[in-house]
Design a protein around this nucleic acid. Structure first.
Lengths: 144, 144
DNA sequence: GCGGTTGTAACATTGAGTGTTACGGCCGAG
DNA sequence: CTCGGCCGTAACACTCAATGTTACAACCGC
């Protein structure tokens, strides 16, 4: 699968902002987060923009601008982040519609559709069990 | 997520071969399957080649050549197909290694690694619950 | 007004997946 | 033992999403 890093980077950004705020700072800048994640500030702003639309973070402009959490880390799950950042389905269908004259070609898409829905629902359940608080805890545990 | 159709096409091919054999034929050709799936025979041969390496199908060359199942449909699960056809992990890490001087940058990868392993294990469990026999049944049910 | 940051457009780059052509290898049929 | 059909695979073009980068207008505390 063409595994992308969107979920990882988004979780990284949220954990970074959360830790930064616990250390007494008001807001974090995309520049700071980008440095920690070894990427470009625009990439961070784009991702955080999607998280803002999902109500997970807030942004301030002007002087003393930057990003802050809209919710506590323990109330944000990986599912929230996943849904904010990965819109499409996990598995794709045929690019061209299969041969409708063929029994298999005709029935395969509704069949797989139903099966995939169940599987994605299971994935959602797994993602919902992990909070960003868990992520930050694991991050700090790894530093020892 | 850049959802690809490899799992769908592979399941389509297996269901097609299975049904074709139940109707009394020995082997199916990549040409026939490609027609049903509206794609190119080479795409089918490549995918079936991976399934052959995983021990799910067999191929014969020469006259009367083609593909046949190496196992019964009810003994093949979507997990078997998934592992044969999707080698990489579901979620990717940072493309460049994050800033190791930063606490979050240092701990994020081991943390996410562990979390992702649990989530992928859950996905595997879901995939293992569906057999290709289930798929074919749903396919035939959809034709009515 | 100044300066720093967000928000977003625009474009280049990369890589996986997919489609296509080509051709050598294999083997049953005749 | 030749022929024809199909596999196996290399090679290449094409598409598309993700990512990286530059640029710049908008915003707002100071």
């Amino acid at each position: 699968m063409s595994a992308n890093s969107r979920l990882t980077i988004a979780a990284h950004a949220l954990a970074w902002i959360g830790l930064y705020q616990r250390r007494g700072h008001e807001v974090a800048t995309s520049e700071q987060i980008a440095t920690s994640a070894s990427t470009n500030p625009v990439v961070i702003r784009r991702l955080l923009g999607e998280l803002r639309r999902a109500g997970l973070v807030e942004s301030r402009r002007g002087g003393g601008a930057g990003w802050s959490l809209a919710r506590e880390l323990e109330s944000i799950t990986l599912l929230d982040v996943y849904e904010a950042v990965e819109p499409g389905p996990l598995f794709g269908m045929h690019r061209a519609t299969p041969d409708q004259e063929c029994v298999v070609g005709h029935g395969i898409q509704p069949a797989m559709q139903g099966i995939y829905e169940g599987i994605e629902e299971g994935l959602r359940r797994e993602l919902a069990r992990v909070t960003l608080e868990d992520v930050l805890r694991d991050v700090l545990a790894a530093s020892r």
